[in-house]
């Protein structure tokens, strides 16, 4: 079985919008996948299904062998511990500094403080923010804040890194820097990366697998794909 597998997934929101229609796909361990599509194409819904922000109306979603569709609210944390999630708006806690924001993700495991410190520092070093440990989010640039959120996402050594438009708020140069960080995580740690994006340049430059979502269906799924103008 592949690391991530969607089988005949349908998603209809309570307001009647059909976001996904009979989507099936598989992603293996260590892959780097872009999910692209216009606004309202169902791309965000697809990403949200993976970390069970949403539940499918029909069909199964397997992540690391767990059927996310059947996961009860109380047990969601077990799935999330296998994942790292990066958002467009960073989702950092403003009253915590860089170190605390990253360590926050490990606090919940009940590890020893020395272990937390070791792993937190390692993750922060990995994203290149070693000299900003004590800074607070509002003292950092957008790119730096996104690095903090990436550090937080990878600090628990997740199998999968899910990125929901991580460069959406960043200028092209900063975006490329962020992409380098994410790519190195994929290559060095073997973490599977799934990234929803709008950014043409990034997709074309990195030449990874591209899944195009359109009108709730998978319009194209190609290895080393490019961002074409197919209604996207």
């Amino acid at each position: 079985m592949q690391l991530i597998e969607l089988k005949n997934v349908h998603k209809r929101y309570s307001n009647g919008v059909m976001a996904l229609c009979d989507v099936s796909l598989g992603i293996s361990k260590g892959e780097f996948v872009f999910v692209i599509g216009a606004s309202g194409s169902g791309k965000s819904t697809l990403i949200k299904l993976l970390y069970r922000q949403e539940k499918p109306t029909k069909g199964d979603v397997y992540v690391g062998g767990v059927n996310v569709a059947r996961l009860r609210n109380r047990k969601v944390y077990k799935l999330r511990r296998k994942l790292g999630i990066v958002f467009q708006d960073y989702k950092l806690l403003p009253k915590m500094n860089v170190y605390e924001n990253v360590a926050f993700a490990l606090d919940v495991y009940g590890l020893k403080s020395s272990e937390i410190r070791k792993r937190t520092l390692k993750a922060i070093e990995q994203v290149g923010l070693k000299d900003k440990l004590r800074s607070y989010p509002d003292q950092l640039s957008g790119g730096e804040q996104q690095r903090v959120s990436i550090a937080r996402a990878i600090v628990n050594n997740p199998k999968v890194l899910i990125c929901d438009e991580p460069t959406g708020n960043l200028d092209p140069d900063t975006s490329m820097e962020i992409m380098k960080v994410i790519e190195s995580i994929n290559e060095d740690m073997g973490t599977t990366v799934i990234m929803a994006t709008h950014d043409k340049d990034i997709v074309n430059k990195l030449k990874k697998r591209v899944i195009v979502v359109d009108k709730g269906m998978i319009a194209r799924d190609s290895m080393k794909g490019k961002y074409k103008n197919e209604g996207v």
Binding site: Y51, V76, Y77, K78, L79, R80, K91, F104, V108, R152
Partner: peptide, 16 residues
């Protein structure tokens, strides 16, 4: 709310 949301996202159990 935000704090709780992030806690959920990084894998904190409800009890925690």
């Amino acid at each position: 709310k935000r704090e709780i949301e992030i806690m959920r996202l990084v894998g904190a159990s409800n009890m925690y």
